[in-house]
């Protein structure tokens, strides 16, 4: 898996999906159109234009809580965000992100320490975050089986089409 190198955009606790992409834009599906409204309630319009390719979002607790809208991770990814690091993630957002090939990292200490504008190097395979600005390093547990398969296949659908659920299934007789 690739090394992620980018600038940090830091947010607080309970960043819900209405803050990531407000409901009134959910009549759109085009990733570029959605990206134009990323974090609009917090950052204003066209925040995506100042997000660099491969930038990193830092969140607090419960990042991505609220609705199941996949528009939220889609807007993040289409804006150039390569990874989100947070203390905890809401579960649907967690699934949705990996399902479209956007990696998330749970690392509470890093999420607390790292500040807006700092530059990070993240090695997903080795489970390492290096803060280039402060030289501080953090490690995180290796991703679990399914999450790796999703990232390697760049999402759930390619995984299903390439490998299929059957390859991961070990069925017992139902008895």
């Amino acid at each position: 898996m690739d090394i992620i190198h980018g600038k940090v955009w830091k947010f607080g606790d309970n960043v819900d999906t209405d803050l990531i992409i407000p409901a009134r834009y959910l009549n759109m599906t085009d990733p570029e159109e959605l990206a134009a409204h990323l974090f609009e309630p917090i950052k204003g319009e066209n925040f995506n234009e100042i997000v660099g390719e491969s930038d990193i979002v830092i969140g607090g607790d419960n990042f991505g809580c609220g609705s199941s809208r996949e528009h939220a991770p889609i807007a993040l990814k289409a804006s150039g965000v390569a990874c989100v690091v947070a203390k905890t993630f809401a579960r649907i957002f967690y699934r949705n992100s990996f399902n479209i090939g956007l990696p998330l990292i749970i690392q509470p200490e890093a999420a607390e320490d790292i500040q807006d504008g700092e530059i990070l190097n993240i090695n997903l395979g080795e489970g390492k975050i290096k803060n280039q600005t402060t030289s501080k390093e953090y490690s995180f547990p290796a991703l679990e089986g399914m999450m790796i398969k999703l990232l390697e296949n760049k999402g759930l659908i390619s995984y299903i089409l390439n490998e299929g659920y059957d390859s991961s299934e070990k069925r017992e007789s139902s008895g």
Binding site: S68, E70, P73, R95, N96, N99, I100, G155, L156
Partner: peptide
């Protein structure tokens, strides 16, 4: 593909919200 899919748990079923890609799968 709606977070409030958990509603049906009242009937004694396992019911959970997912995203659009999960639903496609």
């Amino acid at each position: 593909a709606d977070s409030h899919t958990c509603t049906y748990g009242a009937l004694g079923c396992f019911s959970s919200g997912v995203g659009s890609t999960d639903l496609a799968g």
